[in-house]
């Protein structure tokens, strides 16, 4: 289990992470999301032991990932801009990974075939997507206990994305590894993540089970004979309020049954409940907090 306890990190006078806490269970895929510059990459670097936090600690199965190098044997960090020394090929990078990690030769061959990559060509001649595939190839072949993927889907074509998600799901099923993926492609994350966290204003504003969180917020389409304003729904946790004539669209946080009962009190002509996806969840969470701050 990965435990992140009160992590704070700043660059000079700029606070990037402030008291960030969360945990990732074994066999879980954690989607790390946030607006640009929210500190996702910084958090992944702190977890992988690249950055030293000013405060707090990161524990992987009880071992501190910054202070204890042996803990990092179980972590593989794939950054958003992977490092390939000049002139290196997939074969030379294999030397690197098999020297420092437990590279599974069979898995390496399998994923090399899956990504259709030539191991003898210099990586500097690869396209951005191929470079990304190279790093994912080793991420899958090394079998760490914790895999950290920064912008994992960046530059990948839809077919490769699908193959990678499938391979990752298989790997988790077989080995029970934990994965933290940061990405702006929330649709991709929604397919594979079981938990998520939203980094916002230097701290983890929301985190938890993705399914539960999605169930706790819904889109309601309503029609009333009378006119209502947002203030008339003050008893509910309304995240978004839209009105067109007598048709209302409200995004409301809370148990669907409870919300529905509350809405029935206003005698609506129509109630339709629509589930929200991860992207909408992210947008509503961030927007509602921004609105609350402005108010």
């Amino acid at each position: 289990m990965l435990l992140i306890e009160n992590i704070s990190k700043s660059f000079g006078e700029k606070d990037v992470l402030n008291n960030v806490c969360f945990k990732v269970e074994d066999g879980s895929i954690f989607g790390l999301v946030g607006v640009n510059g929210a500190g996702k990459s910084t958090l992944l670097r702190v977890i992988s032991g690249v950055y030293r936090p000013e405060q707090g600690e990161v524990l992987l199965n009880g071992q501190n990932t910054y202070n204890d190098p042996s803990a990092r044997k179980d972590i593989l960090y794939v950054s958003d801009d992977p490092y390939y020394p000049y002139g290196s090929t997939i074969e030379t990078m294999k030397t690197y990974y098999e020297t420092f990690y437990d590279l599974d030769e069979e898995a390496y061959k399998k994923y090399l075939q899956m990504f259709h990559l030539d191991p003898k060509i210099s990586i500097s001649n690869f396209s951005k997507g191929m470079k990304r595939q190279t790093s994912l190839l080793f991420a899958l072949a090394v079998h760490p206990k914790l895999l950290l993927l920064d912008e994992a889907f960046d530059g990948l074509d839809p077919l490769i994305r699908l193959s990678f998600k499938k391979a990752l799901a298989e790997l988790i099923e077989e080995t029970g590894i934990s994965v933290i993926i940061s990405s702006h492609s929330l649709k991709e994350l929604e397919d594979i993540c079981d938990s998520f966290g939203i980094l916002e204003d230097t701290h983890m504003s929301t985190y938890g089970d993705l399914l539960e969180s999605k169930e706790n917020i819904n889109k309601y389409q309503l029609a009333f004979t009378e006119e209502y304003g947002k203030e008339d729904f003050a008893s509910l946790d309304v995240v978004r309020f839209e009105k067109q004539g007598r048709v209302y669209q409200l995004v409301i946080r809370g148990n669907e049954e409870d919300v529905r009962t509350e809405l029935q009190k206003k005698d609506p002509l129509l109630i339709d409940v629509l589930p929200v996806n991860f992207e909408e969840l992210f947008i509503y969470e961030v927007e509602s907090r921004n609105e609350a701050e402005h108010e």
């Binding site: 992988s48 190098p69 803990a71 972590i75 960090y77 950054s79 801009d81 992977p82 990690y101």
Partner: peptide
């Protein structure tokens, strides 16, 4: 002194002193 190289080298299961 290289951003992406520090990501690779400092995340290795090796202490910086070693």
């Amino acid at each position: 002194q290289s951003k992406n190289a520090t990501d690779s080298y400092f995340s290795l299961p090796v202490s910086r002193r070693e």
